[in-house]
Design a protein around this nucleic acid. Structure first.
Lengths: 233, 233
DNA sequence: CAGTGGTCTAGACCACGGA
DNA sequence: CCGTGGTCTAGACCACTGG
């Protein structure tokens, strides 16, 4: 029955607090010894839990300072770099936000049964003021009650924190699949390029802590002056 | 002077043995307690070293069985999957192998001084008997003495193990950069596609254990029936 | 069953950061 | 200086694997 390791329980509790903004981003959380006392486990167990959360980019640790809530960098999970290696701040504009019945691809990606509804969001992203990326986000409507009635202008730039804070859904993992594709006429128009220009397509499914699919994202980006990288540089 | 943690020393020693084929791939190495005794450290320290090597895909562990040398899967670091998620065995043919003075890009990628020589290898790779990928490998000649005189036919399909066993150079890390590009006439010819077809370009620098660049690899692949993925699926 | 890795504890000392 | 995380130890019990 209860074969789950202790550190998994600790992780789960801490994840819940992080989702609820129990601590602010950047804030130090209690020391390992304090947490060990609170959870009635040893420091080693706390350490194991914290290490796991650090490797999931939920926390950061600094010797002599403490363990802090990760400042979900302004880049978030944004993986495009300029050719010289410098990272640029992405800007985004939401073009459309609407609800609909999930189609076949969406049901497959989000593991939904037939008939479920989804929310579709179309965004364009800019790097250095140039349009570089067009992306479609698809969310299961039942997990985001009321989101379909929000104005496109009110959707924040970094949506993962938004999911956490407004809907209590922390994103802790993702699976990406990449392809090279040719720009469609619509994409060519938005990105100010010629039809059939090669684009990088990034298909990404984001998961909550128990591997439940939360978001299906299809991005198509221009890599004429940027490259994609998700390794630790 | 010597502030390197103990487990780092252990890792280094074990890595050296793995490179020398001290244990065969798939073979179990001594238990944690045996290793702890040999290295005169605690089991916890050995465990930490082994954990790190496991996360580098050098070892695999199974509760109740032991710790084994990773069977560098027939896929190696090959990251193309068929659209249905199935992994296919890549076949490769070496088209050319030659030595030359390193050009600017090669010196940058491999961190070489001007005047150094490199070995260039041009390969074509097949998936399900269809040509899907053209790649250029560039190696610092001084690290691979005699390799430039080898016949293209004698170069094995999986080169990383070859580097380890013939030249004592274990590859433990890599950095990848991806772009979408248009097929050149040469590539179109080899891959049996039209010029300007979108291709995924994978630029990969492979490192030895102390971050020394060993191989610069530029791959261009057709993603009409495959996708690229380097996350744990 | 014996032996393995997986978890957990309690304690020690060190290296670093900030007041 | 104190408190933090980083390393290391020694020992305990559990869960799984194989013969």
């Amino acid at each position: 029955m209860k074969k789950r390791p202790l550190y998994e329980k600790v992780k789960e509790t801490l994840l819940g607090r992080l989702a609820k903004d129990f601590w602010r981003p950047g804030e130090l959380l209690p020391s390992e010894l304090k947490l060990a006392e609170e959870f009635r486990v040893s420091q080693g167990t706390i350490r194991r839990a914290l290490d796991d959360l650090v490797s999931q980019n939920m926390l950061t640790r600094h010797q002599g300072r403490g363990t802090a809530v990760a400042e979900h960098t302004p880049f978030g999970f944004f993986h495009l770099f300029r050719d010289d290696g410098v990272r640029e701040l992405p800007e985004s504009k939401t073009l459309r936000l609407s609800g609909a019945r999930a189609n076949r691809s969406e049901r497959d990606a989000l593991e939904l049964a037939a008939g479920n509804r989804v929310i579709r969001i179309l965004r364009i992203r800019y790097l250095n003021l140039e349009p570089k990326m067009l992306e479609t986000l698809t969310l299961p409507q039942k997990l985001f009650p009321g989101l379909e009635k929000i104005s496109a202008r009110d959707l924040p730039n970094t949506v993962y924190r938004f999911y956490e804070q407004q809907f209590g859904i922390p994103i802790v993992g993702k699976r990406e699949r990449l392809r090279a594709v040719a720009a469609t006429p619509t994409e060519a128009l938005h990105l100010n390029i010629e039809v059939d220009t090669p684009l990088m397509e990034i298909e990404c499914v984001a998961f909550s802590h128990k591997r439940q699919p939360i978001e299906w994202r299809l991005s198509r980006c221009l890599t004429d002056e940027h490259y994609y990288c998700n390794s630790p540089e």
